[in-house]
C-alpha cells in the first residue's frame, strides 16, 4: 500500500537534508561564506519541520526519537525494503 503523503513528506526531508549536506561540504572548506551559511540554516529549519511532521505521523527516523509509549523503532518497514514486502 502506498501513501502519497508519506512519500511526499519523505521526499521533502531527503531534499532539505541533501541541501543542508551540500552546504556543509562547501562550508567545510569555506567556513565564512555567508550565503552558504544562510542556505544551510534555512535547509536545516525546513528539514527539522518536515522531520517533526513525518515522525508524528509515521514513526521515528532515528532511534533517539523512538521511545515514547512503546519502542516504535522496530515497527514498520526498513528503508531498503520494497513497498510490497
Amino acid at each position: 500500500m502506498t501513501d502519497n503523503r508519506k512519500d511526499a513528506l519523505m521526499k521533502r526531508i531527503q531534499m532539505y537534508a541533501f541541501v543542508a549536506h551540500e552546504c556543509a561540504l562547501y562550508l567545510d572548506c569555506h567556513p565564512n561564506n555567508a550565503q552558504a551559511l544562510e542556505r544551510h540554516a534555512k535547509a536545516i529549519k525546513e528539514m527539522n519541520e518536515a522531520v517533526a511532521l513525518y515522525e508524528g505521523l509515521y514513526g521515528p527516523l532515528t532511534a533517539n526519537a523512538a521511545g515514547n509509549k512503546d519502542w516504535s523503532w522496530v515497527k514498520g518497514a526498513w528503508p531498503w525494503q520494497n513497498k510490497e514486502d
Partner: peptide
C-alpha cells in the same frame, strides 16, 4: 547481514 534478516527486532539489533 541486516538486509536479509527476516524479523524487525533482529534487524534493529543488527542496525544498532
Amino acid at each position: 547481514q541486516r538486509y536479509t534478516m527476516p524479523y524487525n527486532e533482529a534487524i534493529g539489533i543488527l542496525t544498532d
